[in-house]
Design a protein around this nucleic acid. Structure first.
Length: 813
RNA sequence: GCGGUCGUGGUGGAACGGCAGACACGCUAGCUUGAGGGGCUAGUGAGGGAGACCUUGUGCGGGUUCAAAUCCCGCCGACCGCACCA
């Protein structure tokens, strides 16, 4: 008979719920440990990725609790966002209802998995008592000058009918719906994340236990570069254009300049030149071609002469100014000095439009000719054609030239970042309203904190038309100006849901606070999160935004930590047939089906055992069954023992079993600490196998002293992985219910003799049993005198013998 | 192009520089059972041998070392991220 997973799991889940087993009372907390899995989007159904994420977190939470920590382990829902709105449009269910029903269902599924959450701390971002403080966050940023409204050229997803942040555009497509993203000129709200660019970059060094991959991705995204700005006078005008370059050492090699077609000065520059018509047509063409495809590296470089010249300030040379599609307006100054000899893009452009190529850096010990050049030379070298810097290493010249342009006031040292400010307004309904009122007299007026929340009205028609549905909501729009009392209009856009998720980990510290998003005292008690766990897909988006919020809140004085997540574990995906489970591929395995069939302990054990947490995991139906059989195998140990014959004679088998037990405890403890759950579980399996062979060898007679201890420790070790059955077994065996993690007995691990490996020329030739405290000389003699090895070695031929006590002997012939 | 991760049986995966393939799935044979499932026993990298054993083996090629899957260099391949960032 199989063990009754369904009944046991129900029973223990009820006990945990009724006893508030995982509730954390702030005042009792002495040794806090905060473990957090990324909260879920309430799509309605838990998928295997959730099961994996939350099971990993639960192992950590339960293990830390067993080790005496006061574990903060909360859950909640990232509940605003488009799917609710789309479902409403499609099925006529209000977003509010759709979301709340789904949240209830997902909480139920999580409880069914046996995750040890503190259910008194759940947080849902779509609730008034939460988004009130999301709006509060907006006001803090606004009051500190970090939130502003600006007209700009923004990403627009025509399918979602809203603007997107740069981070939400992946390879030119919408991160959510994969639709190609276009551009629009709109007045939008931004958060000044760029103010923190340097700090966000520098502090990555503090995050010792973050995966390098994530840190590198963030560093690349922030994209710091060092160089100089150089002012080029416009020929025949008293105006100038400033370029940004990381290669001031190539300044003498500038043979033309390029400006982005959307640069604000372009219209003025081309006006009344013979090129005006041609330029206007070019600008038109460029804007017609999709702005995103224009920025692909392999797009052909196109340009047209502007009819103007610039003056290179270093040598007063007159160079033509081109408009070109490969210049980005939103990086640097939108104007680039072109050095075809030393930049591949400029090289291609120069070849195409027959512009001069001038070499100013020679590779060490070579003399390259610009006419025979087939591609640009971008490495360091020796300066030439560069006035007084000729002959210097280019690296040194770079510094000296910056000094020179600063001294002569023709430029300055400069740092640039790829990171852009975070566009946070969305033209959608289901989100936190931006707490701003527009007054004809006072202009932009923030809603006073005391008037929060700005409530999201519940019954709003949700037709898509490219503007926020709130635009037509008369009750919502009308507001009195908090400053002058006249009639004003509310901002109708809502906030990006990533704003909501940028501070939720702080709310968990103090979820019922009505006056503040959280008290400083409680935030400082729990923050930073000791262990954060989630998918790598948030490497840039959520994890960067959350870091920004934490730093800003620290500067405002609301928290003491400057980083939100001390350790980060990015778990791999769950695959089936080599591909990510997805509805469109039809390879989805439903957690509910697996739990109904085998129970959640089996589901948990599988996702932990099948692969190390950070790697992708391939779903395997028969492996799942195998783990179900394993749990049954453990179950039968208890049954056999209860029905078996017991005595208290010590046999050699008892000693061996005790040794296995203690080495297993040691290994499992180390493995859990390092998140090697798969190997922790295999060691437990080995112990279970040992128990079976002990039973056979001891002819079904159990030494009570040994076995009671073995079963006590075995069931404790199982608690983090398969908590329901572990607790049930403890009850069955009349073991204590309130448990602590087990320690191993160092003495039990001490052996009289040990096996050492004997190698000849590094190849394993056999083994030898020696006293465990044997020293090198003793071991060496033992090997040389052993019959087995005598034949293989002629003593005279021995060149060297390496002895590593307790491990290995290598005889070099 | 740049950056990162990684290449080990039929499969998932183990191996502080020290016995390669732990543990598991699958498969093969046998026992148990009315059958199926389950349970139990043995085997399972490749090649050779009746056999204890021998040879070989961690993508490929070099190197360091008494000793390399592990460290270093060069290729090849896979996956992920960024991508005209001047």
């Amino acid at each position: 008979m199989d063990y009754n997973a369904r009944e046991i799991e129900k029973k223990w889940q009820k006990i945990w719920k009724n006893n508030n087993t995982f509730k954390l009372n702030d005042k009792d907390v002495k040794k806090p440990y905060y473990v957090l899995e990324m909260f879920f989007y309430p799509s309605g159904d838990l998928h295997m990725g959730h099961v994996r994420n939350y099971t990993i977190g639960d192992v950590v939470a339960r293990y830390k609790k067993l080790n005496g920590f006061d574990v903060l382990h909360p859950t909640g829902a990232d509940a605003f966002g488009l799917p609710a709105e789309n479902a409403a449009i499609k099925n006529g269910i209000p977003p509010d209802k759709w979301t709340k029903d789904n949240i209830a269902s997902m909480y139920e599924q999580l409880a069914r998995l046996g995750i040890s959450y503190d259910w008194d701390r759940t947080v849902e971002t779509c609730n008034e008592d939460y988004y009130k403080f999301t709006q509060w966050m907006f006001l803090q940023l606004y009051n500190h000058g970090l939130a502003y409204k600006k007209k700009s050229h923004v990403n627009w997803c025509p399918s979602c009918e809203t603007v997107l942040a740069n981070e939400q555009v992946v390879s030119g497509s919408c991160e959510r719906c994969k639709h190609e993203v276009g551009k629009k000129d709109l007045e939008q709200w931004f958060f000044s994340i760029t103010e923190y660019a340097q700090q966000l970059l520098d502090d990555l060094d503090e995050l010792k236990d973050w995966p390098d991959k994530v840190k590198t991705m963030q560093a690349n995204w922030i994209g710091r570069s060092e160089g100089a700005e150089v002012d080029f006078a416009i020929d025949g005008s008293d105006k100038k254009l400033t370029v940004y370059t990381t290669r001031p050492d190539t300044l003498f090699g500038v043979t033309y300049a390029v400006i982005a077609p959307e640069h604000p000065l372009v219209t003025e520059l081309i006006k009344d030149t013979p090129q005006e018509d041609e330029c206007l047509k070019f600008i038109d063409d460029v804007q017609f071609s999709s702005e995103i495809s224009r920025t692909f590296a392999d797009t052909e470089k196109l340009g047209v002469w502007s009819g103007r010249y610039l003056i290179n300030p270093i040598n007063n040379r007159k160079i033509p100014l081109y408009l070109a599609n490969y210049v980005l307006m939103n990086y640097g100054t939108g104007v680039v000095m072109a050095v075809p000899a030393h930049d591949q893009r400029d090289f291609e452009f120069a070849k195409k439009y027959k512009l001069p190529i001038e070499i100013v850096i020679q590779p060490e010990g070579e003399n390259v000719d610009s006419h025979t050049l087939t591609k640009s030379f971008e490495a360091e070298g020796v300066m030439c054609n560069s006035g007084k810097w000729n002959g210097l290493p280019s690296k040194q010249a770079l510094e000296e030239i910056i000094d020179y342009i600063e001294e002569n006031d023709i430029g300055r040292r400069s740092v640039n970042f790829k990171l852009r400010d975070w566009l946070i307004s969305r033209q959608r309904y289901w989100g936190a309203p931006i707490p701003i009122i527009y007054c004809e007299k006072c202009g932009i007026v923030p809603v006073p904190e005391s008037d929060l929340p700005v409530r999201l009205p519940l019954h709003v028609p949700l037709k898509k038309k490219g503007v926020s549905p709130l635009t037509d909501c008369e009750d919502f729009i009308h507001a009195t100006c908090p400053k002058c009392g006249k009639i004003g209009k509310r901002e109708v856009d809502t906030m990006d849901t990533f704003v909501c998720s940028s501070w939720y980990f702080l709310r968990f510290c103090d979820p019922h606070n009505e006056d503040l998003p959280f008290s400083k005292e409680l935030a400082d008690k729990y923050m930073p999160v000791d262990q954060y766990i989630g998918g790598v897909e948030h490497a840039i988006l959520h994890l960067l935004y959350a870091r920004f919020f934490t730093k800003a809140l620290k500067d405002f004085g609301y928290v003491s930590c400057s980083e939100p997540f001390k350790n980060l574990l990015t778990q791999g995906m769950v695959l089936k047939d080599g591909a990510k489970m997805s509805k469109s591929l039809g390879n989805v395995v439903s957690p509910n089906d697996i739990i109904s069939k085998f129970g959640s302990d089996t589901a948990r054990l599988f996702v932990l055992f099948a692969a190390p947490p950070e790697k992708d995991l391939e779903w395997n139906d028969s492996a799942v069954e195998g783990l179900y059989r394993f749990i049954n195998r453990v179950w039968r140990i208890a049954e056999n023992y209860l029905n078996g014959e017991k005595n208290d004679y010590d046999t050699e088998h008892d000693k061996a079993l005790n040794y296995s037990l203690n080495s297993t405890i040691k290994k499992v403890t180390n493995d859990i600490e390092r998140f090697n759950f798969n190997t922790a579980i295999s060691s437990i399996m080995e112990l279970v196998n040992e128990i079976y062979s002990y039973k056979d060898k001891n002819h079904n007679v159990y030494n009570k002293n040994i076995m009671d201890n073995v079963l006590d420790k075995l069931t404790i070790m199982l608690v983090p992985f398969i908590p329901h059955v572990a607790h049930e077994l403890r009850e069955l065996l009349s073991l204590q219910g309130d448990v602590q993690w087990c320690r191993y007995d160092e003495k039990a691990l001490e052996l009289d003799t040990i096996e050492i490996v004997v190698q000849i020329n590094g190849k394993m030739k056999g083994k030898l049993i020696v006293n465990s405290d044997a020293e090198s000389e003793e071991i060496k003699n033992a090997v040389l005198q052993d019959e087995k090895f005598k034949d293989l070695i002629s003593t005279s031929a021995i060149k060297n013998i390496i002895v590593v006590p307790k491990k290995i002997v290598n005889i070099v012939l």
